[in-house]
């Protein structure tokens, strides 16, 4: 009997290519795990920024407090936009895995990009509104901590957007080869990770601040 038992491929976070592309799956095991290590260290960074923010909520130095500054409507829009972009990135991963249709994949990635940029646009609007009310980082310890936390997330989403642009171009230039696929897998877990960080921002900063 020539039948050999194929070892079960190891899974990694995010979209697993599995039997649709065993070679890239093998290559991705290590790469995605390594990127996951980075994301966990990034999670520690965000956790500490949250801790700083929590300790600073009372330090308003006679400036405005959270409940006077934050509004639910833009936060809700930002949340829904980012959540939808996470979903469309999932769709892009599925197209990459099952359809391998480069044009369609690029379109879905660009939809994700537009949603990401919309999110950033609303955040810039938020920041500008706060600045008009005199709530700038140097107003109080509370606002310094707020801006550090939220703009760190903002910069992450911005890098994610730039990364999407790079991948759309690479898809045109290189097609769907192993390198491009593993890069898209890593971009995927990065994007989903940012949405998870946002859950905690809208909960602990905005919702509990307004409460």
């Amino acid at each position: 009997m020539t039948h050999t038992t194929v070892p079960q491929p190891r899974l990694y976070p995010g979209m697993n290519l599995g039997h649709t592309d065993p070679e890239t799956h093998k290559a991705a095991e290590e790469l995605v795990f390594g990127f996951w290590v980075f994301l966990m260290s990034d999670a520690v960074l965000f956790a500490l920024l949250f801790a700083v923010y929590e300790t600073m909520t009372g330090s308003t130095a006679d400036g405005p407090i959270a409940a006077q500054l934050f509004h639910l409507k833009p936060t809700l829009i930002e949340t829904l936009v980012l959540l939808t972009s996470s979903f469309t990135f999932g769709m892009a991963s599925l197209i990459m895995k099952f359809k391998r249709h480069i044009r369609l994949l690029q379109i879905v990635l660009i939809v994700t990009l537009i949603l990401g940029l919309t999110f950033l646009g609303f955040e810039i609007g938020d920041f500008a509104k706060l600045a008009r009310q005199g709530a700038v980082p140097q107003t109080s310890g509370f606002l310094s901590a707020f801006y550090v936390l939220v703009s760190t997330h903002f910069l992450h989403v911005l890098s994610g957007c730039i990364w999407i642009v790079v991948m759309v171009i690479q898809l045109s230039v290189f097609g769907l080869d192993e390198t491009v696929k593993t890069r898209l897998l890593r971009l995927g877990i990065f994007w989903h990770f940012l949405d998870i960080v946002w859950i905690f921002i809208f909960t602990f900063v905005y919702l509990l601040g307004i409460l």
Partner: peptide, 27 residues
């Protein structure tokens, strides 16, 4: 958080996930 982990990042309690689960627990 758990929903996003399970359905978007596809991390569950499967045996072949042991490495990243351990990393999540350690982090």
């Amino acid at each position: 958080l758990l929903v996003h982990f399970r359905y978007f990042l596809h991390i569950d309690l499967d045996k072949s996930h042991r490495d990243d689960l351990q990393l999540i627990l350690f982090s």
